[in-house]
């Protein structure tokens, strides 16, 4: 990296950009979320097409709610919703100048994300144990693809949030507003992950 590049400062990390009226990071994360809508949207569209064209859904008969574990998924829904409010409170703590509370709420958010993945792990291993894989039929292909992609997003959120909780917190000492904006952007992503699950849960498990 040249000395010039190393000295370069990314503009509008705190003060709004004159054209958009918001900091660049926030605009960037919303554009990213727009692309995410299309990613999940394409898969959801495929699911609707596969399902409406199937003579029976699930193909093996019965109901989705009898095949998948509704109680575990309900708990997981509550876990993700709870992690959304802890994320908001982490950001709010930064706005109120309380880095100690930020650490508590962000720590809770990361912990809840791990709880979600552990529950998902039990769901998956139970299905594998019973011989159900993505290749079993279209129902399981859809289930594993959509929940698997969502799970990858949860892992992505854990990575970002853990960074903000550890090494990333150094920015708080030099630029509080910049750090707070980073937490807000990570929050926007995390709420989106919650939002996707809000649609996946009834679509896959209950209907």
């Amino acid at each position: 990296m040249s000395a010039h590049a190393a000295d370069a400062v990314i503009p509008h990390t705190v003060e709004p950009h004159p054209v958009t009226g918001i900091p660049n990071g926030k605009f960037g994360i919303w554009l990213f979320l727009a692309s995410e809508v299309m990613l999940f949207g394409a898969l959801f569209s495929s699911y609707v097409l596969i399902r409406t064209q199937a003579p029976h859904w699930p193909p093996e008969g019965g109901l989705s709610s009898e095949i998948l574990n509704v109680p575990l998924a309900t708990v997981n829904t509550a876990v993700l919703i709870t992690s959304s409010i802890t994320m908001v409170l982490a950001w709010a703590s930064c706005k109120m100048g309380r880095i100690d509370r930020f650490r508590f709420w962000m720590g809770a958010t990361v912990a809840l994300a791990f709880v979600f993945l552990v529950i998902k792990y039990f769901e998956y291993t139970h299905k594998f144990h019973d011989g159900h894989f993505p290749s079993t039929n279209n129902f399981y292909a859809v289930y594993f693809t959509l929940t698997g992609l969502h799970g990858l997003h949860v892992i992505g959120g854990i990575v970002v949030n853990t960074f903000l909780l550890t090494a990333g917190t150094r920015l708080w000492k030099t630029d509080r507003d910049h750090f707070t904006n980073r937490v807000e952007n990570a929050g926007l992503y995390w709420h989106f992950v919650d939002l996707v699950w809000i649609f996946l849960f009834p679509s896959l498990y209950l209907l």
Partner: peptide
């Protein structure tokens, strides 16, 4: 979803 997007986001 409206609540999450409207208030949390």
């Amino acid at each position: 979803a409206g609540m999450v997007a409207g208030v949390f986001m």
